[in-house]
Write a protein that binds this DNA or RNA. Structure first.
Lengths: 240, 240
DNA sequence: TAGTGGTCTAGACCACTCC
DNA sequence: GAGTGGTCTAGACCACTAA
């Protein structure tokens, strides 16, 4: 954890905490030590700890509650999924789409993937092709790339036992926690090979979502590209 | 300037400064008093003044420069453009596109628009059709709806004199300031009537952005729907 | 060199939560 | 009542700007 002593101390404290959270020193929804304790362990004053924690709060990594403590936030990717696609959810019931792994392979990273994950082109990767369905209706086709070294444990598991969500799997088997994600949205006329699993005619408009999932200390963990029929898609944002 | 003594003192200081800036106590790009002076005049410590000024910086009202001072920001419509215009060209270049008003009319609001603006269906509206271009290449086709009463002043201006940005115009002529916006993103195969101004073949995939612009007190001000060729656009978001 | 904001200290008291 | 974060003090020294 090479710390640059030229950085302000609140910055160093923030980076240290950030790395510790990424390394699961505290589980999500677990309280951090009190500010007084953090001040003591880091050898700074309370004011400096507060400034460090302020920036973690701003980054959405932790939450503070007066009288209770400071807690590691559990990012809710389930809800992010639902933000992206509108389904015929009966009675507002929240349902996780069923996931089906179509393919798993170990393959060298392409230039695009390697750049996004900040690794060398050709670094070994685990690659999944995954289809997500609601009521047996195909909704999203996903192309998922993971650095082989960090996610090797996934190769020991039968993909049919993966379940419907990947991030809990990363956490349990690879000790890797996704804290945030950057997404880039675009659209295209769907190519024939992607049209088939989605049950679309070639050339139909699809939304393309490229996601880089990040750890709490902003290391890129996963690259994925998702495609879904434009007619099913809604995405809401507030700009301030 | 009714101050609520129950509010934190840094909050009161911020509100006071904010009101003084709004009342032009200091002109844009003029320096505020030093933090030491502000602490003395407000009867608080420097740390409290800093916290107040921090929030003004976060709100974009003032800028701080180490060794120089704290300065009132000149509202920069260029930057507001980039705040609200989330599209980037594929190359990543960011330039304000040229705007061309294709049509202006006064017409009753449709149900969709009225609902978004929280007004009655049929309320008189000013409606613009606008094309935005970069390098004479059509980039976005916009359908813009405004409540007639609040924006009547715009009818007195020749649309050819509108310039490339609308929000500064709202501010100058209608005293209305856009503070935030909610956007809903989707995609579709473009209809023939929208394809022509964009120079696209009918059925080509386009991104559709529906925006409701809000005032600082969250009153809906403007409804607009923008369409642009999917191939030209990237929309970036961070999920936390 | 004088003056500014940037960082930091080592506490204090208050508001709130939980027992 | 004990323990937490929220606010606030009254300074200090550092890094930077401008004359």
């Amino acid at each position: 954890m090479a710390q640059d002593a030229r950085l302000p101390r609140y910055h160093q404290v923030r980076d240290t905490l950030s790395a510790e959270i990424a390394a699961h020193k505290w589980r999500p929804e677990e309280a951090l030590p009190t500010e007084t304790e953090l001040a003591a362990t880091h050898g700074v004053s309370i004011g400096t700890v507060r400034k460090a924690v302020d920036s973690l709060v701003a980054a959405g990594v932790v939450e503070r509650f007066q009288g209770k403590g400071t807690f590691v936030r559990r990012p809710d990717f389930q809800s992010s999924f639902f933000r992206f696609f509108r389904f015929a959810t009966v009675g507002g019931a929240v349902r996780v789409p069923v996931s089906r792994i179509l393919k798993r392979e170990v393959t060298p990273m392409t230039a695009v993937v390697a750049a996004a994950l900040k690794l060398e082109v050709g670094t070994p990767a685990i690659r999944f092709s995954r289809l997500r369905l609601i009521d047996d209706r195909p909704l999203v086709l996903e192309d998922i790339w993971l650095p082989h070294d960090r996610f090797e444990a996934l190769l020991a598991i039968d993909p049919r036992e993966f379940g419907d969500l990947l991030y809990p799997l990363y956490e349990q088997h690879c000790g890797v926690m996704v804290a945030s994600a950057q997404e880039t949205l675009s659209a295209e006329a769907v190519a024939a090979k992607n049209a088939r699993p989605l049950g679309l005619a070639a050339g139909a408009p699809v939304i393309v979502i490229e996601r880089v999932a990040l750890s709490a200390d902003r290391q890129p963990l996963e690259w994925r590209q998702s495609r879904g029929p434009a007619s099913e898609f809604r995405y809401q944002v507030e700009i301030r």
